[in-house]
């Protein structure tokens, strides 16, 4: 649980300063600052590598991830099976690559859903204010008052074990609230600023004001929150799959591979170690990227050596 919520809280923490980015130059500076964050750059490299390997898994691996071979059960790592084989004689490395497709896309897609929904709701609440704001924020309060994992378990039971689409939607539906608060806060602080007033005075429509003037200014915290959110979603998916409520076999995901591995730890420790290692690699890379982005986009966090 601690990990599940951490990304949300980090997101809230970065949300506080809503720095305005009015010029391209600032994005450029941010990019340069990001490059200085060596771990974040390393994170990008590792993550890109993971994503590419997963995406091109059929080219990388000669094996079929779902093809069972009962004569090759629990082969320990060897040149032909660099990560060994699993309880059904399938090549573990291949399954990890294909599992990466599922796990990474669950993370990215779920957060895409969450960010879209959160931006929409937060934007509406922040821009229109009054009763709309009050109602929407009560909904946010309610959603935040549900213990998330406990609700996810119910959904898992509800959907009879989840498919990729379902898990993306459910995770998205349970993760948009921090973004919406963040966006709303930016809107509240920006909507009466000079440049918005100016736009309004020359007759710009609400839609244009939101799209051209306000949204770009809340981008920075959203990007950071989204990045960290992806890490959280990957862990959540693996936890759910570990409990048997996530992606169902034979489709591999890093989480459901680990679930199988728990009963085989003594016979075949590699089945427990490698999938966990890849979850860890992906999550740690994303967290570093998020960290780098925060430092880059929010200069207040970059402090001089004392």
């Amino acid at each position: 649980m601690a990990t599940l919520r951490s990304s949300q809280l980090l997101a809230q923490a970065v949300a506080l300063p809503a720095t305005a980015y009015r010029e391209r130059g600032q994005w450029r500076m941010a990019f340069e600052r990001f490059l200085e964050h060596r771990l974040a750059v390393a994170g990008i490299v590792v993550l890109a590598l993971l994503a590419l390997l997963s995406a091109f898994a059929p080219l990388v691996s000669p094996y079929n991830p779902e093809k069972t071979n009962l004569l090759l059960i629990f082969e320990s790592p060897s040149p032909s099976h660099p990560m060994g084989t699993d309880s059904l004689g399938r090549d573990l490395a291949t399954r990890i690559l294909y599992g990466g497709r599922v796990s990474l896309s669950v993370g990215v897609l779920a957060i895409a859903v969450a960010i879209t929904l959160g931006t929409l709701i937060g934007g509406i609440a922040g821009f229109y204010g009054r009763w709309i704001d009050a109602v929407l924020m009560r909904v946010v309060d309610m959603m935040l008052s549900f213990p998330r994992l406990f609700l996810l378990i119910l959904f898992g039971v509800f959907f009879k074990g989840m498919t990729l689409g379902v898990i993306v939607i459910v995770l998205g539906l349970l993760s948009w609230m921090p973004t919406s608060r963040l966006v709303r806060a930016t809107f509240l602080s920006l909507k009466n600023r000079d440049f918005v007033e100016a736009a309004r005075s020359i007759g710009a429509r609400n839609r244009d004001i939101i799209a051209r003037h306000i949204l770009p200014n809340s981008l920075a915290p959203i990007i950071v929150a989204a990045t960290l959110g992806v890490a959280g979603a990957i862990i959540t998916e693996s936890t759910l799959s570990f409990l048997g409520l996530g992606i169902q076999p034979p489709t591999p995901s890093w989480g459901n591979m680990l679930k199988d591995a728990t009963s085989e730890m003594n016979q075949a420790p590699w089945t427990a170690i490698f999938p966990g290692l890849f979850i860890f690699l992906a999550v740690v890379s994303i967290n570093f990227i998020g960290d780098g982005l925060r430092d880059a986009l929010d200069p207040r966090h970059v402090t001089k050596r004392i």
Binding site: K67, T68, Q248, P249, P250
Partner: peptide, 27 residues
């Protein structure tokens, strides 16, 4: 786990005789 394994073997075996078998488990 055992059932899931058996299903996966069956899915694979049935494919060899030209029958597609999809797994759709429920709690």
């Amino acid at each position: 786990k055992t059932r899931e394994q058996v299903e996966q073997v069956l899915s694979d075996e049935y494919k060899q005789i030209g029958v597609e078998l999809k797994i759709q488990n429920q709690p």
